[in-house]
């Protein structure tokens, strides 16, 4: 079930390449800072970083329109950021401050943003898939040409909700793009220890959904595949499925002692760091000068520094507001 990749990729526009590099760097640097802030006890709860997997969100989100909807998992800082949620609002959320994108109610695992149609952070594995199906159903019923993109890990493939959602989406020909971020491990469980059939795209094909496996470390490949899939979905081609083959460089969460994989394996994958891959190929093609790279890094750093300042200046929501948002607030008659 591998993709419909064009045999020859169109030459990279250097400006676009630098843009993709910046997008990945923004996520990387924000999350490096999150890890640091977690160690400093500024961020609490569970923190799951996406370091190593940035090409997936960067490539896919590049292809979306502002009205498209997004559903993600608890490993969603990068998706939120690239969708347009301000880095400051994301960090303030993790600080538990009212200036956060969810007033501090959600935290790292539950970033939401209505303005950018970001339907969250979901901490129940596979819990987002049925939501994505419903969002797509609403678009279809209302006659809108939006696409809903749903991200989830390969661990979610074992849940009933995965299978129920794929079937519904295919049965009703809904405008949804399923993006499986296959980083080979669900916490400590390697794919081969949890799936009898490890070809995930094949499972989607079993539901009559067009499904392609893509190198998730190659942001250009991700972008190309996502663009074809999104275009197909938007033009009424029914649900599509991408299996994005990637790797998480860090522990599952800040509590994971990583007993289940060899350091050497992590190092091997780090050689295919998505940022380094694009950077090297652009450098080799003479598309990225030293000072341009330095500028990208500086831009990403500046954004993170400003976000930290914003979060540090945050304030606590008054406890009197604790019971708000359990039911909708209606204005008095």
């Amino acid at each position: 079930m591998t993709g419909p990749m064009s045999p020859t990729r169109s030459p990279l526009d250097p400006e676009h390449g630098r843009h993709l590099l910046l997008q990945m760097l923004r996520v990387r640097q924000l999350e490096e800072k999150c890890v640091e802030l977690y160690s400093a006890a500024k961020i609490r709860g569970f923190l799951h970083v996406y370091i190593g997997e940035e090409a997936v969100a960067a490539g896919v989100l590049e292809t979306l329109s502002p009205d498209d909807a997004l559903v993600a998992t608890y490993r969603e800082h990068g998706h939120a950021l690239l969708r347009g949620v301000a880095a400051g609002a994301i960090l303030a959320e993790m600080y538990g401050y009212v200036e956060g994108c969810c007033r501090g109610r959600g935290g790292s695992m539950h970033l939401f943003d209505a303005a950018t149609h970001f339907y969250g952070g979901n901490a129940i594995v596979a819990g987002g898939l049925p939501l994505a199906v419903g969002l797509a159903l609403a678009d279809k019923m209302a006659g809108r040409s939006n696409v809903t993109v749903c991200f989830f890990g390969e661990g979610a493939v074992a849940e009933g909700e995965f299978h129920e959602s794929l079937n519904l989406a295919a049965l009703w020909q809904l405008p949804v793009l399923f993006c499986c971020e296959n980083n080979l491990y669900a916490m400590g469980t390697a794919l081969g220890r949890s799936e009898s059939q490890t070809d995930i795209a094949l499972k989607a094909a079993g539901y009559e959904i067009s499904a392609w496996a893509v190198d998730g470390m190659d942001v250009l490949a991700v972008e190309e595949a996502a663009r074809r899939a999104v275009d197909a979905v938007r033009s009424g081609g029914g649900p599509h499925f991408l299996e994005l083959r990637t790797y998480r460089f860090r522990a599952h969460s800040m509590f994971d002692p990583e007993r289940y994989r060899e350091k050497a394996e992590v190092l091997r994958w780090q050689e295919r760091d998505p940022i380094t891959l694009l950077r090297s190929s652009m450098e080799a093609a003479g598309q990225l000068a030293g000072e341009e790279w330095a500028q990208l890094q500086a831009d990403a750093e500046a954004e993170v520094a400003a976000a930290v300042d914003f979060a540090e200046a945050g304030t606590l929501e008054p406890v009197e507001e604790l019971t708000r948002f359990v039911y909708s607030e209606r204005s008095a008659p």
């Binding site: 609490r44 538990g96 501090g104 109610r105 406890v319 604790l322 019971t323 948002f325 359990v326």
Partner: peptide
Amino acid sequence: AEVPIPYSKHMELA
């Protein structure tokens, strides 16, 4: 309190 448990420490404690 009859709320889904919030993330922020002061709200959770409350």
